[in-house]
Design a protein around this nucleic acid. Structure first.
Length: 487
RNA sequence: GGUCGGGUGGCCGAGUGGCUAGGCAGAGGUCUGCAAAACCUUUUACACCGGUUCGAAUCCGGUCCUGACCUCCA
């Protein structure tokens, strides 16, 4: 397994050659969603980005174990505990079983991921399903001297940890500054240090999700689940840990501290962070109220949208930007991507219809190499897509008879498009053409050709315009061969 | 305030010390009974001010603007 893949590592803030711990095995852990409400499009972008990464690693021949957790505890509890509206809180507590919420939004999340054609992870562990592992890990951290218990709550001792490790390795912040500028968290009077965070929290009487532990009845802290589950399924030290950039400063920083304190090793060799999806330049988030739900996008039921956009067009839109760049979301940008996507897929469809000639006027190997170069450069999908449009241009020109290609050229083009469009980018035709429809269309096109041959243009136009209003577009090429596609 | 990013043509977005991605939109043309598609040609760029250099939008310094994180959030 010798690839030229280079990955930007947040730990070092540089691009590094990718060298797995145990090739050809690759362990990939990605922080998944907290399932207490619908995932919005910004969440989806991260998972589509890591789907691209997963797919490309598979394409290169790595045997990838992809673990993406479902957070169904901790955050959820925190969310319910806060806020001033005690009435609402009570209603929530009385009317809904937390696991009902978890189930509902987990299913919704999976449905959306399927629409985006994201490959499911190999393991999708839940926090509530790994309480024992989390407790064991906390016990080990205490035994190692990096955590302490106060009144049923266990805190991580950041100050102690800092004496031996670099706590802010991911973000490069200064500790003094952190101490001065961090907001007061709960439990200040019982914590030893201001930056100490909870590994295990004592449950208040009204708390529904609770488990017994050596420290009494309680529930796990916000960060321990990922440490416990990643080491369980990928080992104490694995290859890639990923998530959204917003997680780096707190969640991942604490995750590294916990894993180091427990296992004395840096949990992941490469830390990858995806950037945010923005709306009018500002981050899409629930608290800002500017989040798009996938459903609103697909139906077009949103004030900023002129119409609905298909999941594949949206996926293509996301892949046209690099995963480490912010991507600005707008109706106009989506329109552009939608057309580009259709152009790409239309050319893909023409591959079957190309006619070979003895002369070659192109170098597919060179194009293929450029595609690999793009992806090897930290998964640069926008450059890959630019190269694929070169392939589109070749395919269209061959189809038009303006360029000649040998059968070998055509085979290689097909292979290139299959690999990169379908396997790596994970794009697919959205409308399945049933055999019945294909036969029917052949028949109708035949009727129209007859009419055209007889110069009965009234009839042929009636067919063309009629089909167009049904969403089917006819295209006559120079040889008067008619093809069709949905619009 | 601290940390880390950005500012690229009408829009979205790559990239690089000289050969100026790509998609969409705009303009002209070819083809076509028409239309669409396709193909060809083409108009708009690298925030501002200095510096380094034979040469910078790309490197360095400064200025302005802007985003994310520092509090649950992908």
């Amino acid at each position: 397994m010798d690839s030229n893949l280079v990955i930007y590592n947040t730990l070092t803030r540089t691009k590094e050659k990718f060298e797995p711990v145990n090739p050809p095995l690759v362990g990939l852990y990605v922080c998944g969603p907290t399932v207490y409400s619908d995932v919005h499009l910004g969440n989806c972008r991260t998972f589509v980005s890591f789907d691209l990464i997963y797919r490309y690693l598979l394409h290169l021949g790595y045997k990838v174990r992809y673990v993406r957790n479902i957070t169904d505890a901790g955050h959820l509890e925190g969310d319910m505990d806060e806020g001033d509206d005690k009435f609402a809180k009570k209603a929530k507590l009385e009317q809904l079983e937390p696991m009902e919420i978890v189930q509902k939004y987990t299913i919704g999340f999976h449905d959306v991921m399927r629409l985006f054609n994201a490959l499911p992870p190999g393991i999708e562990p839940t926090a509530t399903g790994h309480i024992i592992e989390q407790i064991e890990m906390i016990k080990q951290i205490i035994a190692n001297g990096y955590a302490y218990e106060v009144e049923g709550t266990v805190y991580f001792d950041v100050e102690k940890y800092c004496r031996e490790y670099n706590y802010t390795i991911l973000t490069n912040r200064q500790l003094d500054d952190l101490l001065e500028n961090t907001r007061e968290l709960g439990g200040q009077n019982e914590k030893r240090g201001r930056l100490d965070f909870a590994l295990w929290l004592k449950a208040k009487p009204e708390h529904i999700m609770r488990w017994p532990s050596p420290w009494g009845v309680g529930f796990p802290g916000w960060h321990i689940e990922c440490s416990a589950m990643s080491s369980k399924y990928l080992g104490d030290s694995f290859d890639i840990h990923g998530g959204g950039m917003d997680l780096a400063a707190t969640h991942h920083t604490n995750e590294i501290a916990q894993s180091q304190a427990c296992n004395q090793v840096q949990p992941a060799k490469y830390w990858m962070h995806t950037n945010m999806l923005t709306v009018n330049g500002a981050r899409m988030s629930k608290s800002k109220g500017n989040g798009f739900l996938p459903g609103e996008l697909f139906t077009g039921n949103h004030e900023l949208l002129s119409r609905g956009f298909s999941p594949m067009s949206v996926r293509f839109f996301m892949l046209q930007a690099h995963y480490r760049s912010t991507l600005d979301f707008s109706n106009e940008a989506l329109e552009a991507s939608d057309k580009g996507f259709k152009r790409l897929m239309n050319a893909y469809g023409l591959l079957e219809k190309l006619i070979a000639s003895p002369v070659s006027q192109m170098n597919i190997d060179d194009l293929s190499r450029r595609c690999y170069d793009a992806m090897n450069d930290d998964f640069n999908s926008p450059v890959l897509i630019a190269e694929l449009f070169e392939a589109v241009h070749l395919i269209n020109s061959i189809y038009d008879g303006k360029l000649s290609a040998t059968q070998s050229d055509i085979d290689n083009l097909k292979k290139l498009m299959d690999s990169f469009v379908l396997d790596v980018l994970g794009l697919k035709e959205e409308t399945t053409q049933t055999d019945d429809l294909a036969k029917l269309m052949d028949f109708i096109i035949g009727l129209r050709s007859e009419a055209k041959f007889n110069k009965d243009y009234a009839t042929s136009d009636k067919i063309r315009i009629g089909l167009n209003s049904l969403g089917i577009q006819l295209k006559d090429n120079k040889e008067n061969v008619t093809t069709w596609n949905r619009v």
